[in-house]
Write a protein that binds this DNA or RNA. Structure first.
Lengths: 226, 226
DNA sequence: ACAATAGTGTCTGTGAGACAGTATCGA
DNA sequence: TCGATACTGTCTCACAGACACTATTGT
């Protein structure tokens, strides 16, 4: 059996062709009570004119997390938001041009924060309604529809056992707002009284209230311990 | 701004150096009431003589799942067992020789099945006690200790909300056996009566019983709907 | 006063957790 | 009979789910 050292020597002498490694970015937000995702329109073949996930190639001196943060900054125009690695997609024919392995990252951001900085963005990034995208026949570039479906599933699951819902809200928010986010992510309505009992463990009061609406004002809360 | 096509042309002309992509394998099993993992002893530098996860490079015409299955067959000597993708590790210096991005896969197998075919294996694969490994100062090659810790965490979490525990058992098993597996994976004892009530939803009776032990025989069960 | 939304009190059923008991084997 | 393990019945308590009620704003 060939030694590891010899194998690597041959491997690096292009006896073996290396795949390329990219990071694809799923930047989710909530706008107008709908879960949305940032997509760019492809300018060139293949899949020219079709929506696609923003992505960047991983630099040789760059970690995956760094590539993801760079991609979010370059393609979606924002920095400092929550993100986590999702899954790595490695089917052979997923890009018709060449072998590209894609490490997908999921990012969650408040809509206002995303909009504020979006003016500076270089590419034609747009928000797409995730459920419309996935439940229609609409086509996306590459295997990106499958990837987005995987991301939506992850969000739904994590909403049950973690606190990712807060990522979609500003620092201060009302309980009805928080409940609405949960309802959108879970895809079902919740009972107000029960929701408030559970949520109360995760939040702390501020002394501020909403005002100006033609109904009872709502207290503003803040996320606890963090 | 450079067009995508031009960028790719340059990218493939080695103006950009590509990372290598490998698959690292976490083959878990239960032996003597302990969670164990298959490790090989490294024969060459770096980390010569230290235990390491088995792994293979991803072929240019091979999906990640195929590479994982091939790796499990080549390095651990078994086929047809449960596996799933775990996480992708891409720190720049994780391999001192070159930039290698590692897609880790986790595999769960019954100990007997693993032993039966292990005779054919080519490399010096051995079973290591996972908790001993992780809770001691013992060193592992590369970032493999971190990866194994991540794998143990995933197993613990999935034990709560999925049925992965069954993967460690033969096709027919007793309820005390099943309970023991859960206790090992979760790291705590469970109440017999409660466990049986929950487990009864997932299993179906056979008409076989254990025999030969100096106590009441135990019924053998089989996993339901699958 | 009314529409609209914010917020609360309380009953019920389910199911996890705990414990005490019974059953069946070999020696 | 005894030791050992398999298996069962049932109480309790926490909590999710459901619903009805009260509170506070602008118009």
């Amino acid at each position: 059996m060939e030694s590891e050292k010899e194998f690597l020597k041959n491997y690096n002498k292009d006896e073996y062709e290396k795949p390329s490694v990219a990071v694809d970015l799923l930047v989710f937000t909530i706008e107008n009570d709908r879960l949305k995702i940032v997509l760019i329109e492809r300018a060139e073949p293949p899949f020219s004119g079709m929506p696609a996930l923003p992505g960047v190639f991983v630099g040789i001196n760059e970690t995956l997390d760094e590539a993801a943060a760079r991609g979010i900054a370059e393609e979606a125009g924002i920095t400092g938001i929550y993100f986590e690695q999702l899954y790595t997609w490695g089917d052979v024919g997923r890009d018709p041009r060449m072998r590209i392995i894609s490490v997908s990252y999921m990012s969650l951001a408040n809509c206002e924060k995303l909009k504020l900085i979006a003016g500076k963005r270089t590419s034609a990034a747009e928000l797409y309604d995730v459920d419309e995208l996935l439940d229609s026949e609409c086509e996306l570039a590459f295997d990106h529809k499958k990837i987005i479906r995987y991301g939506r599933e992850r969000i739904r699951n994590k909403t049950e056992y973690s606190n990712i819902a807060f990522e979609f809200l500003p620092d201060e928010f009302t309980l009805p707002q928080l409940q609405k986010v949960y309802e959108i992510l879970l895809g079902r309505t919740l009972y107000k009284a029960n929701f408030r009992k559970k949520a109360s463990l995760l939040i702390e009061e501020t002394d501020k209230m909403t005002s100006g609406d033609a109904h009872r004002p709502s207290r503003l809360y803040r996320r606890k311990n963090q």
